[in-house]
Design a protein around this nucleic acid. Sequence first.
RNA 1: ACGGGAGUGGCGUAACUGGCAAACGCUCUGGUCUUAGAAACCAGUGAUUGUGGGUUCGAAUCCCACCUUCCGUACCA
Length: 889
Amino acid sequence: MNEKYLPQDVEQKWQKRWADDRVFEVAVNPEKPKFYALEMLPYPSGRIHIGHVRNYSIGDAFAWYKRLQGFNVLHPIGWDAFGMPAENAAIKNKMRPDVWTRSNIDVMRAQLQRVGFSYDWSREIASCNADFYRWNQWFFIQMYKQGLVYRKRATVNWCTECQTSLANEQAEGGFCWRHTETPVEKRELEQWFVRLTKYNEELLAAIDGELRGNWPERVLTMQRNWIGRSEGALVDFALAGQPEKKIRIFTTRIDTIFGANAVVVAPEHPMMAELLAQAPNRAEIEAFIERVRSLSFVDRTSETAEKQGFATGAFVVNPFSQEQLPVWVANFVLAEYGTGAIMCVPAHDERDYEFSRKFHLPIRRVILPNSNNDTEDTLRYSEMPYLGPGFLSSNCGAYVGMDSEEARTKLAEIAHEQGFGESTVTYRIRDWGISRQRAWGTPIPMVHCAACGIVPADEKDLPILLPDDLDFNIGAPLAHHPYFVTATCPNCQGPARRDTDTMDTFVDSNWYYFRYCDAKNDRQAFDPAVVKYWMPVDFYIGGIEHAVLHLIYTRVWSKIMRDIGLVEFNEPVKQLLTQGMVILNGVKMSKNKGNVVDPDEMIERYGADATRLSILFAAPPEKEVDWKKMLRVMNPDSPYCDQVFKLVRTYADESGQMVHDIELQNGEFHTLPEGDGMVDYPAAEGAMRYLARLWRLVRKWHDRTQPGATAENLHFNELQQGVRRATHQTIKRISEAYEDGLRLNVTVAACMELTNHLYEFDGKLKDGEPTAEGDCFVMKEGIEALLVLLAPLCPHITQECWEALGHPGYLTDARWPVFDAELAREAHLEIPVQVNGKIRSKVLVAPDASDDHIREAALHDAKVMAAMEGKTVAKVIVVPKRLVNVVVK
RNA sequence: ACGGGAGUGGCGUAACUGGCAAACGCUCUGGUCUUAGAAACCAGUGAUUGUGGGUUCGAAUCCCACCUUCCGUACCA
């Protein structure tokens, strides 16, 4: 064992051995319990950043933890390799996207290996490889045959930056998920859709069932809201004088229908032409509709948007009251939700109230809050609009006095019986449009034949290969590629045209982790028997940003695979952890924001183990880490450096060189002069200091401990027992931290504490004297436990130390230390004694002392007696083994 | 606006879930060692737990109000 801890040497040595001996490669083994540890796969954007290091360090720690517990752990990695940035690089740098992507992958793979993650590299996949995406095409065809993908013309979201359509989930809030500054536009397009909505109820059931407690509540809430289930009723309002023509509305409050003062339709409503037939100011209304329709999603829904509308001149009949109501068109009614038409009930809906007040429409109360003896007088002072439950008022014809909840079902039933409505459930979630007008993606395996229509490609013709000589400087490269476009109809063998759209890249991430299970299979997407062994994923780590994107799609995809007969389970991910981001100056790190911190420099200076340790120690996994608090500008000669934390922005300049800006005053950034940009990482330095300390301890003791020694026939003195106690308390603490929310920061603290304790013990021994057998045993026990407990975080140094202690094999064969409650028990308890809630003294008692004994000891303590002087004891509270509180008056 | 988190030393955080507040680390100060520095080691500074009220023998922890902050949703009828 080297005298000095040299992380580079240690890390390179073991990384090479791990690779040579394929230490982390696993195979199906029915004898062993399996564990599937997974992290969301990276996009090969160029280089790894510190956020990746954090995410993957968390996952690696858990994979190691399970491995040390004896599980057969599958821990794979791969590349989300299709997508826009490659295509942009192709346009900008005239590089082929596959070349760009693969060279990025090579760089990033080397970086990941340098961090020493315990991946089974034999399973590495890249979604841009034909042996992967051919199965996207295969799935597509299966789903097409089952009616789970279908084609329709629809208004879709269009990102002008991406030059492609987007799914609703990818345009949340009106902005593109990649370009959060770019508002999406609407376009009419013919597209392929995946029938997500078939699984609405199933998705919801699991959110409130098996996923609850195992997925973060935050993610479940977001998914629940996204699915947006809403129970209500559809009601037809016939046009006055034209009973065969009806406007269908959706409402969750059919019980308020007697209070309707109008029917309001969205500007896009399909009956608009008919409704406007009578309108005297038709031109004005049409101009209004045109104006609203041309607004971007954001402008149209922004908070400041005032309610605007026009009466169309048409009237409808309220089917319950036979009352004639005007039909209005207004900007606040959404065409894409419900039926695109509502009934306006101002007394019991905020928006309708605001709208009616503005346009002076009559407001009529139909739900009375307290009972049916509310009078108009008492109501005058009650709130408007009233949204709560109550009783139907005398405005409600035969239903007066009915409970509003009851009326909700009752009126829907009546509507159904009389043929003008029914109760229904609507959802906010839409089917998933997966066609993309891009070239760097999975070609959609469909053929357009003049004679046969749209026909799926023959399965034996898969994969439909993406040409590698596309010209990216013309729009729609696939459509302009003659050999790609030309096809033969699988049906009639006549000439046909290929679909020139590609699939959304979220298709790849739907099932990549199934492919890891059987990554080399060239006959099927995966062997169901193999997947049956490894799946579902036991522990999945990724960012919260995929809560309603990837994590909804992939749940549905699993259900589709189940329905096709490939798998048997319903949910693909048992437990989910959403790790906190690493942010810099309040912004998430990402390549296109230019604020990426490259870990290479840190690893070079402090080693991979210290880098990992420092970032895991910084905060619990689900919390954000602010990178600026992890670093400091260091250059004592620089006038900018005065031993004070500075705000540093780290990014790569044009040439790829890392540059550090430093913030001085007033939030202004200044580029540091040449040579002053030295950045120091106190956190990583501290981590390395700790590891060096551990190293020295092991070095001092490694040849004094015998690998085979047992505690039998040894009698331990008090000091030695203290070491064993600390060891076992640490085992307990760390094991609990893993099980209870994977609080890795706590495990680091506990390891340091144990190390401190071992040093303390070492310091008490007289140097130079032959060491007692008991001393050697307890140190060996402590050090070995410490190494195994720390291995998930710092696999290199612990492995090196493990070897130094005389263990021939890899740490993967070590086992998580077993906690012994007897050894962890305190020799005696120090019980704090309070007098009226204030700590006055402490008494020492035996660990098995009775409450009575503790009480007596406390009451006879000199300091306690002094504090009670002249007062009478009212009550004595004894918390077993914990504390005594004497209440005196 | 609504919904959900979160406020603990100069900083990051911990506290067995109602029982000794601050473990662990960073920073800082002093010392030992050294020609000097670094490293290392030793010692030390550091809190009305956001504010106010309540429950309790006892509150960082539970309840109420307020303040600050982060995240999510944003006319979904």
